[in-house]
């Protein structure tokens, strides 16, 4: 028991804050968590992250869903507050045309080269 109290002290010392983990998230909530990037552990999604910030973010998502926001509204809300960076699924806009388009372009070019090689397309 003594060790446990040491442990709990340790945790409190290491993180000066109080965390409130979201209880029993729904499927939709999890989907949204997975698409939001945590600003503290920047390589992880809110779903994977253990940071306090991610937990707060989860609470906000749940609260917003309850108040009637749709999934898209929440993404819009987060984008407003933290910039496009927080979303793992970049939306198609001026900055990302090439991101979404280039792979397809490569696919088409590759296809054309192969068709010519196969003799289907003649010069």
């Amino acid at each position: 028991m003594k060790k446990l109290s040491i442990f709990l002290m340790l945790i409190i010392c290491l993180n000066n804050t109080y965390s409130f983990a979201v209880d029993k998230p729904t499927e939709l909530e999890n989907k949204i968590f997975k698409n939001l990037r945590c600003l503290i552990c920047q390589g992880q999604s809110v779903y994977d992250s253990q940071s306090d910030f991610a937990e707060s973010m989860k609470i906000v998502v749940r609260k917003n869903l309850k108040s009637g926001m749709s999934e898209k509204d929440i993404y819009q809300f987060m984008r407003n507050n933290y910039g496009e960076w927080v979303l793992y699924d970049p939306e198609i806009n001026k900055g990302t045309y090439l991101l979404w388009g280039l792979p397809f372009l490569f696919f088409l070019i590759g296809g054309a080269i192969i068709l010519r090689k196969l003799g289907v397309l003649k010069r």
């Binding site: 698409n35 999604s45 496009e84 960076w85 793992y88 699924d89 900055g95 990302t96 991101l99």
Partner: peptide, 16 residues
Amino acid sequence: FLEVISNQRISVGPPF
């Protein structure tokens, strides 16, 4: 590339 060219920062993750 996007950051250098237009200073815009995005994340490309699993959904993409």
